[in-house]
């Protein structure tokens, strides 16, 4: 079923909370709307339920990748070019550990950043997306209801009732 977006823009946190309450009063649940803010707000301030994320997988995968690459690199180069220096063993484990440590962390960090971008559902190079209002970065709070086509007027009304400064947007999404 086609779902559509409607965005109510609120001037401050109190009116946004009122908007959220009136959305709930109109029978919408936390699944039906999303908050857009210009800065982080305390969790659950407008009734949203943060979904669990899988971010922790990324640094672990990155760390393991880095560790294996470093093991390959350190052990491989020493074995491929077996010259004795300073009477040290060809596989000089303490020296290898230093490089394996660094590369594990390097890849863990790179993967974490990739994970954050991926889990944030980014990147989208074309702009902020279909329904958006630049006032959000001016401190306004947006409540974006994504509901079935026939409930759009109800959502629009609920947003309006909460005291929205403006209600914008009505674009079809898949």
């Amino acid at each position: 079923m086609a779902r559509q977006n409607v965005l109510g823009v609120y001037a401050d946190a109190d009116s946004a909370a009122a908007g959220a309450r009136s959305l709930r009063a109109a029978g919408f649940t936390g699944e039906d709307y999303e908050v857009l803010t210009g800065n982080p707000y305390p969790e659950g301030a407008f009734g949203d339920h943060p979904k669990r994320n899988k971010l922790f997988v990324f640094p672990i995968a990155g760390g393991l990748t880095g560790f294996s690459l470093a093991l390959l690199f350190t052990a491989g180069t020493q074995a491929a070019f077996p010259l004795v220096t300073g009477g040290k063993p060809i596989l000089a484990i303490p020296a290898m550990m230093i490089i394996m440590y660094e590369m594990s962390l390097l890849f863990a960090m790179i993967f974490t950043v990739m994970g954050v971008i991926f889990e944030s559902r980014l990147p989208r190079f074309s702009g902020a997306g279909p329904v958006y209002d630049p006032r959000i970065t001016l401190g306004y709070i947006g409540l974006l209801a994504t509901v079935e086509e026939e409930r759009i007027p109800a959502a629009r009304q609920a947003l309006q009732d909460g005291g929205a400064a403006d209600v914008v947007g009505e674009t079809t999404t898949a």
Partner: peptide, 17 residues
């Protein structure tokens, strides 16, 4: 030297035993 201090510090194996 057999345990030459100069060798392992070279990053490019320019000196070795």
């Amino acid at each position: 030297c057999g345990n030459a201090p100069c060798e392992p510090v070279c990053p490019v194996y320019a000196t070795f035993h």
